[in-house]
Nucleic acid binder design. Structure first.
Lengths: 158, 158
DNA sequence: TCAAAACGTTGGTGACGCCAACGATATGGA
DNA sequence: TCCATATCGTTGGCGTCACCAACGTTTTGA
């Protein structure tokens, strides 16, 4: 028996316990999890992950950066920057050269291939984001975004 | 120097790249991450994690359940149910007995200690949730929740 | 009766976020 | 100028959450 029955004897699809399913934090994490699924799948198709996108986007926007700056502009831990930059360099998406001014630093720059990858990832994200938000009316979407904006600002990463 | 300077020479706190920081999915994941931080910290103080809470909540709400049913009522993978139930049983929060009707099944029931833990976790979650949503006005909160509700429903776990 | 399904378990994988510690280098104040 | 302090990149690790494949056991339903 794959379904349980409620007190009326009706067949009942297994339900999540309201004890947590009604919580704002649960709904939030459900939606975020779905978002992550869609994005991770889109990235994985291209052999990349969220970290790669963030690093490429930061380089494209700010130009050359050393790794610590990449970390600050992406919210990544320095150790994760190291790994991500290593992967992206191996894939030819960026260059990594020792700084002439500061011998501790590595100067990272996006390559043309990296820019192409970035725009491909960006389109994939557009698609995923559209799929995620599709169930909302325009008004609902705007109101949701307003709340997220306020909270994201208040609980800033950085 | 912990800050960089913009083109006007003003000191500038390192900013996230708008390329992703302006995306709905980014804001969503930022807020969800913050929520997770608050909840995980609250759980960790009591030596528990989200899985434990979900399992206890399901048992408290539905009564005795076998493990597969716990999985369906919590969104957990069966293998994670196994681990979580093992931990909770070791802590005396639930009992685990072979079913007399179906020798494949284990019948799980919450104990009084488990109920106490559950209500303590619940208070901690209340606090965390309040802290998370505090920056919102009542109207903003309601509008945010409406959007999350629609999306959580549409992209249901199950 | 017997193939198919369900059950619980073991032992993984991956993404993301984070931490401690280290050697090398740069900086700034005494 | 010297030296404590800070920063940089790196290694190796941890925890949470979500998920998967494979397995032996037991139940089911055609």
């Amino acid at each position: 028996m794959a379904v349980s029955t409620n007190c009326y004897g009706d067949p009942m699809v297994d339900e999540l316990a309201p004890r947590f399913a009604q919580r704002a934090t649960w709904k939030l994490s459900t939606v975020a999890q779905r978002s992550h699924q869609l994005l991770a799948a889109a990235f994985a198709e291209r052999g990349r992950r969220g970290y790669d996108f963030r690093v490429l986007a930061a380089l494209d926007h700010f130009g050359e950066l050393h790794q610590a700056a990449i970390g600050r502009h992406t919210g990544l831990d320095p150790s994760d920057v190291t790994q991500t930059v290593r992967d992206l360099e191996a894939a030819g998406e960026l260059t990594r050269l020792p700084s002439s001014e500061d011998r501790r630093r590595m100067v990272i720059a996006i390559t043309p291939a990296g820019k192409r990858t970035l725009s491909r990832l960006e389109s994939a994200i557009d698609t995923a984001e559209a799929a995620l938000l599709a169930p909302l009316s325009d008004a609902q979407r705007e109101r949701l975004l307003e709340g997220l904006e306020v909270l994201a600002q208040a609980h800033d990463r950085r």
